[in-house]
Design a binder for these strands. Structure first.
Lengths: 175, 175
DNA sequence: CAAGTATTGTTGAGCACTCAAACAAGTATC
DNA sequence: GATACTTGTTTGAGTGCTCAACAATACTTG
C-alpha cells in the first residue's frame, strides 16, 4: 500500500498488539460460545436484537439498524432474514419511503432476548469486568473511544499523516 | 447459565463494553480489509504465516501451530490446506511421532509474507498506535494481559467467584 | 420533466469458521 | 497381544460473512 518502508512496530508495540489480539479473540469467542451454547444466538444477532429492543416501537429502518449494529447492509439483510425465519423479527414496508424496510422486534423475539440476556451479561462480567480494576475500565473506554473515532475520521490518506489536518475540530489529536 | 439474577452492568460498564465492541470490530475489520485487499490474505492466515516464519526451520507441529495462532485444530487444518493450495505452506510427516504432521513455510510463502507485512504494519500503526498515547499502549497491554490470562485460568465455575481460589500464585487477583 | 445519479435494500456465489464425527497412531492395562 | 484410552489430525455439513451485481425508488439539475 504505502510503498516506502513502513515504521515497524517497536518491541513494546509488537507485544501490545499480539496480546491485544489474543485477548480480544479469546474474549469474543468466549462470549460468542456462551451465547451460542446457551441460547443458540450468534453474538451479531444478539446485537441486532438489542438495538431493536431499545428503539422506539422496537423498530428501525434497515439502514439505521445496520449502522447501529455495525453491520454491512448485506450482512444485516441476511441476518434479518434468518431472524425472521425464527419469528423474532418482522419486516414491514416503510410508509414514508417506498424503498425502505423497517425491521421490528416481535414479542417472541423480545422474550428470546430477555431469556438470553442474563447469561450473556454474566459471561461478559466474568470474562471482562471481573478481570479489570475500575481504573482499567475507564482506560479501556478511553482507548476504545480513540480507536473507534479514528476509524470514522480516517487520516487524509497518502502519507503517514502530513501537516495536512484541515481544521477538523475534535478527534484528530496532534498529528 | 448461572440461574439467578446476574449482576447487570453499570452505566459505565455498558458504555465501556459497547465502545470496546465497536472499536475492536472496526479495528479488526479494517486490518482484515487492508490485508485482504492489498495481499489477498485473511488475517487469520497471516497470523499462521507469521508464527511459522518465526519458528525454527520455519516449521511447527500442527498442534503447536494451532496453539500459537489461537486456532482450533479444525480451523488450522482447513487453513493449512488452503495455504498448501497456494504453495505457501507444505505439510511434512513428523519424524518422531507418526501421527503428527509438520507445517512448514515455503520460500514462496515467506516471500508472500514479506510482501504483505509492510502494508499490514502500516495499517496497524495508523489504526491503533497512532491513536494512542504511550501510556495508553501500556495500559492496553496490561488490560489485554488480564483478559487473556483470565481465559486461561477460568474461574472455578459455579458461583460468581466464591472464596475458593485455591492457592494459585498469579493472575487470580483478588476475588 | 427527462436523464443522470445516489440511496436503499436484496440476492447469490464463494470463502472461512464451527461443531461433531471419524480415523489413525501411540500408550496403557490386563 | 488384544482391550480400551488418549492424542493428533482430518473431514463434512451447516452457518455466517463478504463482495459484486441488481432492482427499485428517490433526489437533482439542466
Amino acid at each position: 500500500m504505502t510503498g516506502s518502508d513502513p515504521r515497524w512496530l517497536s518491541e513494546d508495540e509488537q507485544r501490545a498488539w499480539r496480546t491485544f489480539l489474543t485477548a480480544a479473540q479469546t474474549l469474543f469467542s468466549t462470549v460468542e460460545g456462551q451465547l451460542q451454547r446457551d441460547s443458540g444466538i450468534p453474538h451479531g444477532y444478539y446485537e441486532i436484537l438489542v438495538r431493536l429492543s431499545e428503539a422506539p416501537d422496537r423498530s428501525l429502518r434497515m439502514s439505521q439498524l445496520a449502522e447501529a449494529s455495525a453491520s454491512s447492509k448485506s450482512r444485516l439483510s441476511h441476518a434479518v432474514a434468518r431472524l425472521e425465519d425464527r419469528g423474532w423479527v418482522e419486516r414491514l414496508d416503510c410508509p414514508t419511503d417506498r424503498r425502505g424496510q423497517v425491521a421490528r422486534l416481535t414479542d417472541v423475539g423480545y422474550t428470546a432476548l430477555e431469556a438470553a440476556a442474563p447469561g450473556h451479561v454474566t459471561q461478559v462480567r466474568e470474562s471482562l469486568f471481573d478481570q479489570l480494576s475500575p481504573d482499567q475500565v475507564t482506560q479501556l473506554a478511553a482507548i476504545s473511544e480513540a480507536i473507534a473515532s479514528a476509524a470514522e475520521n480516517p487520516a487524509p490518506a497518502g502519507l503517514g499523516c502530513p501537516l495536512a489536518c484541515s481544521g477538523d475540530d475534535e478527534d484528530v489529536a496532534d498529528c
